[in-house]
Design a protein around this nucleic acid. Structure first.
Lengths: 142, 142
DNA sequence: GTGATTGCAAATCTTTTGCACTAAA
DNA sequence: TTTAGTGCAAAAGATTTGCAATCAC
């Protein structure tokens, strides 16, 4: 029966509600897709392509909208690497990134694998929203 | 005489030659403009606008090309902040950045003001090209 | 001269938006 | 119902590119 399939999406639905986002079919399916398969780094286009592959009907505009809303709600994190290259990271815990320039690929670094210390204090009137560390890698013989 | 004015550009010319770039009028003027006024963070558009303001004749395409060439040659550093927002930094020494979200503004942090330690080793076959730390700031009452 | 560089306009790419339609509450 | 969300196509930005004209060497 239909409930069996719906149950698969319970987590996504709950997460969306908690985030204050109406759990529409598209959002539920996209969030579910994003969370399937562990921590991932996907571009908007990657996600749209993947959605199409599994037979979802979602427009690219909706993918962009959903990704932005997810990011604002803290369900995702966006990592911008170069003009025109940005990834959405399903790992929202504190961590950092390796970026393989040649492969245009991100890899998570657990937060305790790097220590960033002696941070200068946030300037007057501001507070730290996030500390981002990206270690850019190139192939060795370069 | 003309030589007096040219002398102003000697440094830029030398830097370009050293970088293997032909010191054309546009490149010399742009590099000189970039280096005037200390460390700065300019978008391509900022630079084009500024060039126009001081009466230089450079097309936007050439500004982009020059900035990319300068970056590749190590005369500049590019800092990408968000999709569609990237800055070219005239400070090419090792350092990090504060980013003021609301003001869309970068500020340098001297490298010794932050310590990034216990970096995980670069994965097999790769080497670290650069370690980038961006501290994103938001206004305090937010 | 000869090959590199420039300017312009057009093309490309990524991302956002307006608006009529549809779905969620 | 009533309001929020979606799809589509168009618009908006940012950046790149093709090619004839120009410049550096």
């Amino acid at each position: 029966m239909i409930m069996t399939r719906d149950r698969t999406f319970t987590l996504a639905v709950d997460a969306l509600k908690e985030a204050g986002l109406r759990p529409t079919r598209q959002r539920v399916q996209l969030l579910h897709l994003l969370r399937a398969g562990g921590n991932r780094h996907l571009s908007a286009d990657d996600l749209a392509r993947e959605a199409k592959k599994v037979g979802l009907s979602v427009s690219l505009a909706t993918v962009y909208n959903a990704l932005n809303q997810f990011t604002q709600s803290g369900l995702l994190r966006e990592v911008v690497i170069a003009p025109g290259i940005s990834y959405f990271d399903t790992n929202i815990g504190p961590h950092h990134h390796f970026y393989f320039e040649e492969e245009r690929r991100l890899q998570d670094i657990p937060v305790d694998a790097v220590s960033v210390s002696d941070l200068p204090p946030a300037p007057m009137g501001t507070k730290v929203a996030r500390v981002e560390v990206v270690i850019r890698l190139e192939s060795e013989q370069k």
